[in-house]
Write a protein that binds this DNA or RNA. Structure first.
Length: 632
RNA sequence: GGCGGCGUGGCCGAGUGGUUCAGGCAGAGGUCUGCAAAACCUCUUACUCCGGUUCAAUUCCGGACGCCGCCUCCA
């Protein structure tokens, strides 16, 4: 990375040296006797009266005391936290290193062949995030982890200022569960961030409305495949909307693109990459030398360890179906079928995404996204199909999110440990689920529990209460995030976090840093500062897709939920508050406290503010809702 | 067997070759308040283990142990 002259992070040379010397001195004093023998260690502990300390504790712990000043002392010396601090990672030179975590594995930006960040390469036509001051010294552009390379790479769209994104959506044979929610939310953050970054985004998320499972389920329920699809699509739409996901530009359904799929299969036949056996058509993986490049497997390894049933009619065990024949009898029994050059049948699963993504976004397009279980075989096969047919790359980058687990086990329908989004949303706002999902990086596995979502809910309440406070003081800000995001120094850490492979966990931390800052300004009565902070909080929250509802509306809804749970009417609470107000003005504290205690017993907490008394549920979401239990 | 990932404080979860510091939740003390609540301030200093590299390792390298995912429909 090349920095404009004069923009290198400045460090006073002499100052730095002094600090280094001090640090070394601290370090020496705090030196841990790492290689001391057991006897020496015991003697050391005995000398400090620490003989009875925990077994198996690393000796180093006990020597920390001699180390750098404890936090209390340090803070006294430097009481002001610096919100504008530049994340360490963004500093020049610090991009090196860190290969232990794959998330940190990145292209070295600070030397070697010059890799211009995409925006710099594009020049000024694309809105920058801010002036030189805002982003100086940082990795200027968005970087994303690409499964193809296995690395974090600077993102550069094929066409300046425009991005095409395709997300493998859902098969609508059942309601969506929390695992699906993670996909929706993870790539909705991508969608929002690309927009905030000033890109014109074409976001496509498909719906698979025909496949084996749908046929099975429809038969089991005694409904048509189409009816099953309609019902679950409606549910799906409710769920994604509740999760605060932006609407995609296109939402293609497999059944509406059969022609394109047939056309693609014909082209594969022409290239001898597909062969028909009876009414079925298979893809010949041996004909595609790059097969395995995404999942990084060799054909030989796969076959050696394969648990696949060998179909006699396949030329190679790894060949997969492009088109499946449907018999007249099955069709009569309700199995969907379309005419094709190979007879009546339906498309295989992988072909639909190849056909729809390239039809809507072109080939190649920018980003292809989905859950990590789609790496193989789904996305591998899509590559084989699209690249085999067109002889050019399929997609530039592949993004995959990690799983949601329950008790450290994958949440999946085959394991029967699935929580439907709707089950959660009936007990807590779906927005709390969203905050929960983005509080972990999208490529780390996360453990799901209702308690954890309830915890996120309390954090969400903190956000909304702060916004409500600000609004009440006339520091109201815009609800939606403007795109591109305005250049505000305070948002710089947020930009850095999201630019770093969508590090939402860090971004959430920045959001709550700002929340605290805003509360501080409100406490101090600094309306001007509060108004500015309110805007930043809104912008940060909106980029993450939380805090976008009107704060009072959100809090009212939760109050109503609490009242319903307690079996109280709003009028009763209001009457109590009025009676207590009278008692208070008469300085009848005994009566006032009595009334407060009465409401507290019902789970209602009163808050006496400057503008009168308000109430809130005693513990926003503190009681974890009853477990809905795994769905069968 | 092949490929990939993970192990951080009471819990969740970022991050890092030395620096003042993630953040949330929970708990404790304080400020404020008639009493509270909320908010703010402070505290509860952690990186699985064993080696190596280094002046310095939770961070880099090697190994061990434990856990998870994909290779079969799966987000």
């Amino acid at each position: 990375m090349v920095l404009p002259a004069g923009l290198e992070p400045q460090q006073g040379g002499r100052d730095r040296d002094r600090r280094r010397r001090l640090r070394r001195a601290h370090r020496r004093r705090a030196r841990r006797p790492r290689h001391q023998g057991e006897a020496a260690l015991r003697a050391h502990r005995a000398g400090r009266g620490e003989e009875g300390l925990r077994e198996g504790t690393h000796p180093g712990r006990h020597h920390r005391r001699a180390g750098p000043p404890r936090r209390a002392e340090r803070v006294r010396r430097a009481p002001h936290r610096d919100l504008l601090r530049r994340p360490r990672q963004g500093r020049r030179g610090d991009l090196r290193g860190g290969a232990r975590h794959p998330r940190r594995r990145r292209l070295r930006l600070d030397h070697g062949p010059q890799l211009l960040p995409a925006e710099e390469a594009r020049g000024a036509e694309v809105p920058r995030h801010g002036d030189e001051d805002l982003l100086r010294g940082d990795a200027v552009a968005l970087s994303l982890h690409n499964t193809l390379s296995g690395r974090i790479e600077p993102f550069e769209p094929l066409e300046p200022g425009k991005v095409g994104v395709y997300v493998c959506g859902v098969t609508v044979y059942d309601r969506c569960h929390v695992g699906h929610a993670r996909v929706f939310v993870a790539f909705d953050v991508l969608h929002r961030w690309l927009r905030a970054r000033g890109y014109q985004v074409t976001f496509v998320r498909n719906i698979t409305d025909v496949d084996d499972r749908m046929i099975e389920r429809a038969r089991a329920e005694g409904v048509s495949v189409a009816a099953l699809a309609e019902r679950n699509i409606a549910e799906f739409r409710r769920d994604v909307a509740a999760l605060g996901c932006l609407a995609p530009a296109r939402e293609p359904r497999a059944t509406e693109w059969i022609e394109a799929m047939i056309e693609l299969i014909r082209r594969l036949e022409d290239k001898r990459l597909a062969y028909a056996v009876g009414g079925d058509v298979y893809y010949a993986v041996r004909g595609f030398p790059d097969y395995g490049k995404l999942s990084k497997r060799r054909l030989e390894d796969m076959i050696a360890g394969a648990r696949v049933e060998v179909d006699e009619r396949k030329r190679d065990p790894m060949d997969f179906a492009l088109w499946k024949s449907v018999s007249a009898a099955s069709e009569a029994a309700g199995e969907p079928a379309w005419p094709s050059p190979w007879g009546r049948g339906r498309p295989g699963w992988h072909i639909e995404c190849s056909a729809m993504s390239t039809a809507l976004l072109g080939q190649p397009f920018d980003l292809h996204c989905g859950g990590e279980d789609l790496i193989f075989p789904h996305h591998e096969n899509e590559i084989a199909q699209s690249e085999g047919a067109a002889g050019k790359p399929f997609a530039r980058g592949f993004l995959h999110n990690s799983f949601v687990r329950i008790n450290e086990e994958k949440m999946s329908k085959s394991l029967g440990n699935v929580f439907a989004i709707r089950d959660i949303a009936e007990r807590l706002p779906a927005e709390a689920l969203r905050l929960f999902l983005i509080s972990t990086h999208y490529r780390s596995p996360m453990d799901f529990s209702l308690e954890a979502v309830a915890e996120s809910f309390r954090a969400l309440v903190r956000l909304y209460e702060t916004l409500a406070r600000a609004d009440a003081r006339g520091a109201r800000g815009p609800q939606a995030a403007p795109a591109p995001l305005p250049p505000t120094p305070r948002l710089e850490p947020l930009v850095a976090a999201l630019d770093d492979d969508l590090n939402t966990a860090r971004a959430v931390a920045v959001l709550f840093d700002l929340v605290r800052e805003l509360n501080r300004a409100l406490d101090a009565g600094d309306v001007a500062a509060a108004a500015a902070l309110r805007r930043d909080v809104s912008a940060a929250a909106a980029v993450l897709g939380v805090g976008e509802r009107r704060s009072e509306e959100f809090l009212d809804a939760e109050r109503r939920r609490a009242l319903a749970a307690a079996g109280l009417a709003a009028g009763e609470v209001a009457r109590c508050i009025a009676e207590r107000a009278a008692a208070r003005s008469a300085k009848d504290w005994k009566r006032a406290d009595e009334l407060r205690r009465g409401l507290a017993a019902a789970g209602i907490v009163l808050e006496d503010g400057a503008a009168g008394t308000t109430w809130r549920p005693a513990s926003w979401g503190a009681e974890a809702p009853a477990r809905p239990g795994p769905r069968a």
